[in-house]
Structures are given as structure tokens and as C-alpha cells.
């Protein structure tokens, strides 16, 4: 159980790091150009694509494991 959970957390952290790198200098500067691709400016096209892929990855990692390793039990009061 902790094994699965740790692996899931590791994946999420890696996704975050990749996201931060992809959405910042210098990678971002590669797309900062006045040019159109599929009718959209390259920069916007790139940002929205990364955005969508990022959401997809997070959803994949979180939804793949069917349920939480430790199902939450509301704390007793």
C-alpha cells in the first residue's frame, strides 16, 4: 500500500517539474514568435497544448489507481 502511494506521489511531482520547466524560460522563449499555426499564434497554441497534456497526465495518474490506498475515515470527535 505505501509502495503504490509513494509511486503515485513521485509521478505527480515529476509531472509538476516537467510542467514548470515547459512553461518557463528558456523553453517558453522558443515559442515566443509572431507566427500562426492552425490559425492560432504559436505561443498560445503551445501554452494551451501543454496545459491540456498536463491536465491529462494528472488525471491519468490519479484516476488509474481505483481508490485511495487508505480510504479516508472521518476523524472521530
Amino acid at each position: 500500500m505505501p509502495e503504490i502511494k509513494r509511486r503515485q506521489n513521485e509521478r505527480l511531482v515529476v509531472i509538476l517539474i516537467v510542467g514548470v520547466i515547459a512553461l518557463n524560460y528558456p523553453i517558453l522563449s522558443l515559442f515566443s514568435k509572431v507566427r500562426l499555426i492552425f490559425g492560432a499564434p504559436v505561443l498560445y497554441f503551445y501554452l494551451f497544448t501543454v496545459w491540456t497534456v498536463f491536465i491529462g497526465c494528472v488525471a491519468l495518474v490519479l484516476e488509474k489507481t481505483t481508490s485511495s490506498p487508505f480510504v479516508s475515515s472521518p476523524p472521530k470527535t
Binding site: 505561443l43 496545459w51 490519479l62
Partner: peptide
């Protein structure tokens, strides 16, 4: 220009860490 987007990209990135 694209300067409005980081305000929404930040929460997207952060949401990856929400689970823990």
C-alpha cells in the same frame, strides 16, 4: 498578450500536488 495566462497556469501546476 499572454501575460494573463500564468494566473491560471499556476493553479494548474499546483493541482498536481493537491493529492498529497
Amino acid at each position: 498578450g499572454a501575460g494573463f495566462l500564468p494566473i491560471y497556469l499556476g493553479p494548474t501546476l499546483m493541482a498536481a500536488l493537491w493529492w498529497f
